[in-house]
Amino acid sequence: MKKYWINSRDYILIVLGALIQAVSLRIFFVPADLASGGVSGIAQLINFYTEWPIGLMVLVGNVPLFLLGWRFLGGRRFALRTAVAIVTYSLLTDLLLKIPLFMYYSDILINDLKGDIFLNSLYGAIISGVGYGLVYRARGTSGGSDILARILNKWRGISMTQSYLMVDTLVILSAGFIFGWKQALYAMITLYVSGLVAETVLEGGGTVRTAMIVTNKPEDVTSRVMDELERGVTYLEGRGGYTGSSRPVLYCVVSRAEVATLKTIVHEIDPEAFMVIGVAHEALGEGFRPLKG
């Protein structure tokens, strides 16, 4: 039952994420002539001249990419989630125009933001980023440049950031010639901001700090951290590179607000201690968010 619930939850998130992306495209990107990158951006450019339905072109353009993803990114498991995301996004992109209630409120927003490309790009980036993040959390992809970027990452070792940049550059340049270079610049900013938002939604906003502490008084430090911060401490086996002697390394995870207290504890007990503070995107388990699928 748990497995079925997780799968059902994933598909609900994918549909919701696709809906949010479609809303962002219709309310912010299309009225402001902001090419959203990838297949959607190409569809916008073609629609500018032909008025062919954007959603239909997105669906058609994703077919060859979908087949590539099937071949290189995991077969059936990849295909099912990605197919749901692509079909839902494509259908909603066109169907939203046939819903009177949506058209009524979207016209209000469009008129309110008319001529303000900055706000259109900002709102569009944030909202579409939430949509992308929900799809990614559900272990899906949004098709288009997402598929190509993952293929480049997997088979050529190119980072995801560079992959997206390579894939979307041609679309942004084309948008510059058609919509104007001001719109192209804001489209680049939109892609960057939406990526940050998607990453936040995917990994969670609960950024925490990790600490590794080398001290001659590990028991005292551990006792105060557990008593005052109520955080667990793990002993790691370490060996000094210069002295060759064994000594424990304390490892603990704290919130950002607790870093100052941790520094004070270590300094008061052992001013000669060595401590490294790192950043972790998310902490799951006892004392933090529950570990779940």
Rank of each mutant, 00 (worst) to 15 (best):
W181K: 11
L19I: 05
N153C: 11
L250Q: 03
K292W: 07
I54L: 01
L148H: 04
N7F: 09
G124E: 00
N120D: 05
Y4E: 13
N7D: 11
R137L: 12
I269S: 03
E219Q: 15
G144N: 08
T93W: 03
G204H: 13
G205F: 12
P100H: 08
R9S: 13
T215E: 02
L284Y: 07
S36Y: 07
L109W: 08
Y49M: 10
S246K: 14
V23M: 01
L191R: 04
G61N: 13
D112N: 15
I265S: 06
V214Y: 01
L68D: 12
A187Y: 04
Q21W: 01
G55C: 03
R224Y: 01
R71W: 10
P218E: 10
S128F: 00
G74L: 01
A22T: 00
I127V: 00
L148R: 03
T207S: 14
A43C: 11
V130R: 00
L67F: 15
L67D: 05
E199M: 12
T88P: 06
G244N: 06
R231K: 04
T222D: 01
T82E: 13
K292A: 13
G144K: 07
R137F: 07
I158L: 11
L25N: 01
A257K: 15
S40M: 11
K217D: 10
Q183D: 09
G133S: 09
P218Y: 10
F118N: 07
L73A: 09
L165R: 05
E203I: 13
G176P: 00
S36N: 15
V253I: 15
Y89P: 09
F288R: 02
G129C: 03
F66A: 07
L236E: 04
I46N: 12
V60L: 13
L67A: 14
V39L: 10
L250I: 05
S106I: 01
D270E: 09
I158P: 07
E282K: 14
S145C: 05
V254K: 07
L68V: 13
G238Q: 14
L68K: 12
S245R: 14
A280V: 10
V266E: 06
L170M: 10
S163T: 08
M166Q: 09
L122K: 02
V58H: 03
G157P: 13
F179E: 03
E219L: 14
G180M: 04
V23P: 00
R247N: 15
V254A: 09
T210K: 13
K154W: 05
G180F: 08
L284T: 01
L262R: 04
N120I: 00
I110V: 10
I14L: 02
S90H: 08
K114H: 11
L96R: 05
S90D: 08
G204M: 08
F28D: 00
G140A: 04
Q183I: 06
